[in-house]
Design a protein around this nucleic acid. Sequence first.
DNA 1: CTGAAAGCGCTTACAG
DNA 2: CTGAAAGCGCTTACAG
Lengths: 328, 328
Amino acid sequence: MTVSYSFNHPARVAEATRTRVLETAARLGYRPDSTARALRSGRARQLGVVVGEHLSYLFDDPQAAQFLAGVSDVCVEHDLGVVLIPTRGDHDDVDRVLSAPVDGYVLWTTVIDDPVLDAVAGCARPAAIQGGPAHPGLICVGPDDRAAAAAVASAVPLQTATPVVVSFPLDRRRAVRLLRGAELPEDLADTAAVPFPVTGARLAGYRDALTAAGYDWDDVCVAVVERNQRQNGEVAARELLAALPEAGSLAVLAMSDELALGARAALTGAGREALLTGWDGSPEAAASGIWSVAASLREQGRACARAALGDGGDDVVRPTSWTVIAPR
Amino acid sequence: MTVSYSFNHPARVAEATRTRVLETAARLGYRPDSTARALRSGRARQLGVVVGEHLSYLFDDPQAAQFLAGVSDVCVEHDLGVVLIPTRGDHDDVDRVLSAPVDGYVLWTTVIDDPVLDAVAGCARPAAIQGGPAHPGLICVGPDDRAAAAAVASAVPLQTATPVVVSFPLDRRRAVRLLRGAELPEDLADTAAVPFPVTGARLAGYRDALTAAGYDWDDVCVAVVERNQRQNGEVAARELLAALPEAGSLAVLAMSDELALGARAALTGAGREALLTGWDGSPEAAASGIWSVAASLREQGRACARAALGDGGDDVVRPTSWTVIAPR
DNA sequence: CTGAAAGCGCTTACAG
DNA sequence: CTGAAAGCGCTTACAG
């Protein structure tokens, strides 16, 4: 059809014909049907954003919002639609995800043993996942958590204080525990031993920094919290204080600003001095004397979208930038 | 094809045949292609959410996030995809919106003179818009702003204080002004006179309440701000104080909690007592002695999605619930 | 109860 | 430079 050529390959049609076609189309309100176009071309021109568990969580979390904004930056640029695909934890999640008319997937906050992970990794469409877990068939986008954890821990004067760690859960059982480095798996990157890869990588980074500073990781106290909320940080700090009654000031390496702020409240309440590191680069942490790591989730969203478009190489891991933020 | 019947009309196929088809499909990883299905059936099974101006704004605004969560509630329930359609203010916005493979539209924060509004209203697909403006061809979803404004204004003891209004802009010129009720259009619902319909409706509600309380609207001071930010409320309050040096305590009817909080800061700074009303039901307002109106944006999102699905009647306006929140 | 046929609206080699 | 033909993967009357 000459009309089709006029829209898609203007050079192949005589100028006059093309003008006539386009004008008539405008007058008639005709425009190519995107569904038919998608069927014929095999490209839906849409990217699917798979959101673990409840979609509403995505919208309650400002970090997630930044991530999604990054995804949509790239999609606007390439004139692609963004389709939100919530998973419910049903068995038909896999079906819904694979049935979606999209050219690639961006995965957000999916648990490691989610069957959707295997399904998406195994399908023909490119897929990127924010923050891991690394998975054959998925491009893993995110900061190098281990390096960033080591850097933020090294930013504080470790020599002057007893280092302790306030850690995210190791796995989805989310058991609250207080243990020593020796009780943790040797290989923290082994997702069989530490199913939450972000937790493992950050623990490894803290270990790197503490070992370099002359501490024996085996003796370091690690408080594992259930969730990333301020009060969990408070409880963890109290337990650490109880476990280390003799220690002087503490250097608390916490995996989030929220946890660090909670720990700080508990320590201040107990009249104890402490150096603290968190994560996420929140203004409140910086204002509260807490070192932090800032990694732009918007940038990660952009990187995920590009990967899910099949742009760029076939690298399995795409590191994104991060910086250590000193308190002000 | 028997396969098609097995998936879509199981009753029309013998039990044994169907089982065999489904098992084979599962083994082969076959599932119906949604694009082909959409082409054939004429239904994309997707809803488009048209987001005015920049998509990233959507994600910076927690209210918007709630709205989107409401839309996705309904879409999950009906197994529909949610496609985000950002508009850029280009001339090809209309084209992009109309080209999207969706069965209906939900419009969010679109300005009244947006050509997308006419385009969407004029197309065959059902469309709903949050908060207005009312537009032929669009289903308008939102609380009754006029009634809610009257209710929140009436909730404060108006007799004991001089009432003043801190208003959103009347139009997209967003001129900062200080005027009297008499200078405002008589018909506040006339979108030619007051292009921002929410502003007009709330002004009308305040007028209702003040008139009922025995005040002459013509004399009431109305400060119009440029944007909905705290500092704009502060500036407005200072101007009101300057304009009403003789007045005792004020009753400030502000169109948002942010504006009310700003006004409160300015008045407290000037050592003045004030009763205040805001809008949005924020915890901070409630904790600061400010009456407010809470209207669930999640509920509005749900209502928009249902309307955009073509569910329900052909009513042009779908009021959603609201409540006046007293400070605690 | 099952299967062959038409057609949804496009795009792309291909022939004129 | 322009147009007739096949086919993307479905669904749905229709015939067997």
